[in-house]
Amino acid sequence: MRSALKWIVPVAAGPAVYLLPQPDGIKSGGWAVPAVFTGTVLGLILQPLPPRVDDGGVFVLLLLLWSVGGQGCGSA
């Protein structure tokens, strides 16, 4: 049960923050940033995965970004 809670809290926190009423002057895309940040910070604190798995995920993400070659990343 404790392991499941470590997964549920970070995954549920992002949508929960996103569904809160948006402050005036903040667009929908801008309001997603605090939601993602909240889920990320809670994931880092609760650590639902062992650190070795996290490192592998970062490595795969970097390889994926490298293979794309920066397409769609602001290149004119």
Score class of each variant (00 low, 15 high):
Met1Tyr: 01
Ser3Phe: 04
Ser3Lys: 10
Lys6Thr: 04
Trp7His: 06
Trp7Tyr: 08
Trp7Ile: 04
Trp7Thr: 01
Val9Asn: 01
Pro10Gln: 07
Pro10Leu: 01
Ala12Thr: 05
Ala12Val: 08
Ala12Ile: 02
Ala13Asn: 06
Gly14Thr: 12
Gly14Glu: 06
Ala16Gln: 00
Ala16Met: 09
Val17Leu: 11
Tyr18Asp: 08
Leu20Glu: 05
Gln22Pro: 02
Gln22Arg: 15
Pro23Leu: 05
Pro23Ser: 04
Pro23Gly: 03
Pro23Asp: 07
Asp24Ile: 02
Ile26Glu: 00
Gly30Ile: 05
Trp31Phe: 15
Ala32Thr: 09
Ala32Phe: 10
Ala32Ser: 12
Ala35Ser: 15
Ala35Arg: 13
Val36Ile: 15
Val36Cys: 11
Phe37Glu: 09
Gly39Val: 04
Thr40Phe: 15
Val41Arg: 11
Leu42Phe: 05
Leu44Thr: 11
Leu44His: 12
Ile45Asp: 11
Leu46Asp: 09
Pro48Ser: 14
Leu49Asn: 03
Pro50Gln: 09
Pro50Cys: 00
Pro51Ala: 02
Arg52Phe: 08
Val53Glu: 05
Val53Gln: 02
Val53Pro: 00
Asp54Ile: 13
Asp54Leu: 11
Asp55Met: 10
Gly56His: 14
Val58Cys: 07
Phe59Val: 13
Phe59Cys: 12
Val60Arg: 08
Leu62Ile: 15
Leu64Glu: 03
Leu64Trp: 13
Leu64Met: 07
Trp66Ser: 13
Trp66Ile: 12
Trp66Phe: 14
Trp66Asp: 09
Ser67Leu: 12
Ser67Tyr: 12
Val68Arg: 13
Gly69Met: 00
Gly72Gln: 08
Cys73Thr: 15
Gly74Trp: 01
Gly74Ala: 05
Gly74Cys: 07
Ser75Val: 13
Ser75Ala: 14
Ser75Thr: 11
Ala76Val: 01
